[in-house]
């Protein structure tokens, strides 16, 4: 384990992600949320840890979703304010939808709903075989016109990227254009990020942190099944 640490710590420029990988604008507040979600004391030892964990996870998710929405296209427009003056603003384009990868991706659905009240949400269930670690798609349900929509694909933790690759392949089978997909992610390892940007160079990826260890306890902690 320690050998791996050193290697990643000293060689992060060795990875190549391309221009489509975007990082959430970091500040101390975001860093604190990330720290809490990784903190062993907060996540494992405390009795109240699950509500606590969910609370801070939801806050980070909200920020990531807000930033993901910024990747969507928009038009400019003029509106009149109550004071009778004009304001040059922007208007979001219609025709978006969300797709969550079951199960941990579902943790991000509420965050999306909090921002877009009536957005359609599809689901994909990808299961990895416990023996071969091979990921396979078990279930997928999308809006019927998903091929014409921008898709916000939600999956919070990526350590290898295998699951996401399967999910994106399913979307492409449903004729979703690669550059219409935005992957919304909380934590990714550089390896996973590189794997995905190499496999799908046109897909936009938004994450809050690139770090060599993924907090793999996330889904279990969030849903309380550890």
């Amino acid at each position: 384990m320690s050998a791996q640490c050193e290697k990643v710590n000293s060689t992060s420029p060795a990875y190549e992600f391309g221009p489509k990988l975007k990082l959430l604008r970091s500040n101390d507040q975001v860093r604190e949320l990330q720290t809490i979600l990784r903190d062993n004391v907060r996540t494992v030892h405390r009795n109240t840890s699950r509500t606590d964990f969910k609370f801070y996870a939801d806050r980070l998710i909200r920020l990531v979703i807000e930033e993901s929405l910024n990747q969507l296209p928009f038009d400019t427009c003029m509106v009149m304010t109550p004071t009778g003056n004009y304001y040059k603003g922007t208007k979001y384009q219609r025709g978006n939808c969300g797709v969550s990868i079951v199960r941990s991706g579902e943790a991000m659905e509420q965050g999306l709903r909090d921002c877009c009240r009536s957005i359609r949400i599809g689901k994909i269930l990808v299961e990895s075989d416990s023996d071969t670690h091979e990921a396979r798609v078990v279930y997928a349900k999308f809006p019927h016109d998903i091929a014409d929509r921008k898709v916000l694909l939600m999956y919070p933790i990526m350590s290898t990227g295998n699951t996401v690759i399967k999910a994106v392949n399913v979307l492409k089978e449903h004729r979703v254009a690669e550059d219409n997909i935005i992957l919304s992610n909380l934590f990714t390892t550089p390896i996973a990020a590189q794997t995905i940007t190499t496999a799908f160079p046109l897909m936009t990826i938004l994450t809050s942190e690139l770090y060599h260890i993924a907090p793999n306890h996330f889904g279990q902690k969030y849903f309380g099944t550890d």
């Binding site: 101390d28 604190e32 720290t35 990784r38 903190d39 494992v44 770090y211 993924a214 907090p215």
Partner: peptide, 20 residues
């Protein structure tokens, strides 16, 4: 708000340096 640097233990058994 003011923040300080902290190092926390993670469930993955690798210390993580973050903010509080």
């Amino acid at each position: 708000l003011p923040f300080k640097n902290v190092i926390v233990d993670t469930p993955q058994c690798v210390p993580y340096s973050g903010k509080r």
